[in-house]
Design a protein around this nucleic acid. Sequence first.
DNA 1: TATAATAAGTTTGCGCTGTAAACATATCGT
DNA 2: ACGATATGTTTACAGCGCAAACTTATTATA
Lengths: 214, 214
Amino acid sequence: MPKSDQPKPKKQYHHGNLRQALIDAGLELIAEGHGAQIDLRKVARKVGVSHTAPYRHFADRNELMAAIAEEGLRNLADKVHRKIETVPDDFLSKLEAFAREYVEFAIAHPQLMREMFSGINTDYDAHPTLRQALLYLFEPLVSTLKQSQAADEIAKTEYVHLTLIIWSMIHGFSALVVENYVIRKSLQGTEAIDNMVHLCVQTLYHGLARKDTL
Amino acid sequence: MPKSDQPKPKKQYHHGNLRQALIDAGLELIAEGHGAQIDLRKVARKVGVSHTAPYRHFADRNELMAAIAEEGLRNLADKVHRKIETVPDDFLSKLEAFAREYVEFAIAHPQLMREMFSGINTDYDAHPTLRQALLYLFEPLVSTLKQSQAADEIAKTEYVHLTLIIWSMIHGFSALVVENYVIRKSLQGTEAIDNMVHLCVQTLYHGLARKDTL
DNA sequence: TATAATAAGTTTGCGCTGTAAACATATCGT
DNA sequence: ACGATATGTTTACAGCGCAAACTTATTATA
């Protein structure tokens, strides 16, 4: 994803549009394993601009990291959307697809995942686009959730709360995998992970599948 | 917790025992809100030693942070143990107590929590004491879990996997609270949190309460 | 079309950090 | 008593975030 000349953001200045280039470079550095120790100067160097150029587009390091995290969130959401459309239209299938994609993304991009949920940045009252990205991520899950509630399949608890419960489980497992608190002993490899994701999903499903309110 | 002269660690050198003093100072700095941005020099300054003194006790910054994280984990485990002994001896009660204490700790020490689970440090193959602390944290939960399995109350799935499922849910919710991804809209305050913890626990309990294997 | 205003990028500089190396001193084993 | 070793200090250096002053390209306006 090099400098794109899409209709939206900036015009054609010196660089093209540096803002996006910096975000992309940041994502690449993270992907290359440079860890959460990304610094403004490395990113600038990678793009080929001076080390203070980013300050024309981001107030400080935190704002760049927030933008990177937000882009990562959108990438995750895209991945989820793509997959979830291909599975049968029942709650369990959608839930399992959501969980599987989420965890898969976390394993594929551990450093990015860490950055995405490493706080401080999460001023998502200030940054409305971040809120938007979150809503986008959960949209397919919420939709099947409501459908399932209408069909008396799962508890009538507020869907926001149900979403949070599901997110907690999936995100928690992802976090523990990313932070290496899991495996080490078990079968290792993807097989054990897949099995665990299945267990988490089953627990969620049977825990939520009630006709009353929790 | 100033410099202690317990029987275990080091003798009475120049400082007393600096290692523990550095860990304590680090915990205090984190508690004072200095965030995850703790640096070696501040910690050394706080203790009153030169800024390279820590290198006689920790190979690098990461090792100090790992030690701080480990101490934090033990504090959490202590808190859980203290509480869980006071509740009725049934699975649901113990589970709820575990969850409540875990989340409460996360809310009380968000920065520490972040540091404890911010990766890289988690070489808990290399550091056996960290593994020990983890086992200590989960010991009361595992114990009631096995008891409950024996009584045909919950699924006969491997207890390690069940523990991981429970941990995922509780830790995930804690993480989302710490990173400010939750609340903002809801009732705020501790009431909404308590309610959510209850929902998580209920979901876990009903999701796991089956006589077969998941 | 010329030119002032402004947006985008650069250079320079400062204080801070992590950490390596050389040095100093207290403690302990012999 | 004394050398070895553990502990702490001083000095030094490169890299970082960021502020300020400067340069250059773009845009708006006359």
